[in-house]
Simulated assay, not measured.
Amino acid sequence: MHQLTPAAPPTVLLVHGAFTDASCWAGVVRLLQTAGMTVRALANPLRGLEQDAACIRSAVREIAVPVVLVGHDYGGAVITHAATDADNVVALCYVAAFGLDAGECVLDITNRFAPVPSAEATRIAALPVRIPGSRECELYIRRERFSQVYAADLPSGVEEVLSVLQRPIACGALTGRSGPPAWASKPSWYAIATADRMLNPTAQRFMAQRMAATEHLLDGSHAVVLSQPDAVVAMIREAVEQVDGLGPMTFARTDDTGMGC
């Protein structure tokens, strides 16, 4: 067991979702740092729920202070799965994100609600061959549709750059089944993007209410972490302030370097 630093303020760990990378948090990071908070934006491999969660869990266990985990999009599924047995995670924040229940996958949620424009705006490409005979594939947003479905509220030209920089997600990540959800035992916050065309806002509200999260309604696109970083930071700061000052806790620290990214 590893002792947490007593009375230490939480570290905020940001986990991005599909079709982007950690740079999507740039505005959020700047505002959190200006507020004097310790923050890290982690690289999410986007290769599969189990291995992506293992990567994030490994990073969490290296931190000897309380952690507030924040996930956007598919990053929500990752933090839900990763934080279940991470005792130093004291709160979860979801930003237009998947907060899966035990046994659920991303497609279970998207198929449960009315289709959004992104359903017809993606394309599948073969994954670079790594294992002979593998048929794994990965998913992109079509460049000509990126602005409409992902970043409709960003300045003209910015979304074009983002469409070029997008990182694909392995198709298998969308069918990975979640374990017991961390939100069942940890306080949660959820920013619902009401103009989202990637993840149905109704689905977001359903997940937020299911986890009894503190809800924040943001009039923004799926790229709300970029278009409204101040509103996202307001939610994160609310979570941090409510869990700050917790007494020392203990958590298991793995020596298995295979858990790392």
Rank of each mutant, 00 (worst) to 15 (best):
M207I: 14
A239R: 05
P187D: 13
Y190F: 15
A223D: 11
T175V: 15
A239C: 03
A231W: 02
L217P: 06
R205E: 11
T194M: 09
R205Y: 10
A195C: 14
H216S: 12
L217T: 04
A234I: 01
A239E: 04
L217Q: 10
W189M: 07
S227N: 01
A234N: 13
P187I: 11
P181N: 06
R205F: 08
W189F: 09
L174D: 00
D219C: 10
T194Y: 10
G176C: 03
P201L: 06
G176H: 01
P187F: 07
I192S: 04
V232C: 15
V225R: 00
H222F: 06
D196P: 01
E215Y: 01
W183F: 03
D196I: 08
H216F: 15
A212D: 14
Q209R: 15
V224M: 14
P229F: 07
I236K: 10
A184P: 05
V233A: 09
V225S: 00
L217S: 08
H216L: 12
H216G: 04
L174H: 00
A231V: 05
D196Y: 04
G220Q: 06
T214Y: 08
S185H: 14
G220P: 05
F206W: 14
L217F: 07
V240H: 06
L174C: 01
M198D: 11
F206H: 15
R237I: 10
R177E: 09
M198A: 13
G179Y: 14
Q204P: 10
E241P: 12
G220S: 13
T202H: 12
S227C: 02
M207L: 12
V225E: 00
D219G: 04
A184R: 15
A213V: 07
A208Y: 11
M198C: 15
W183V: 00
R210N: 15
D196S: 05
A234Q: 10
M198F: 10
P180C: 11
I192H: 01
P229M: 03
A184Y: 13
R177H: 14
H222A: 04
H216D: 07
G176P: 02
R197V: 06
T194R: 13
A203E: 04
A208N: 09
F206D: 14
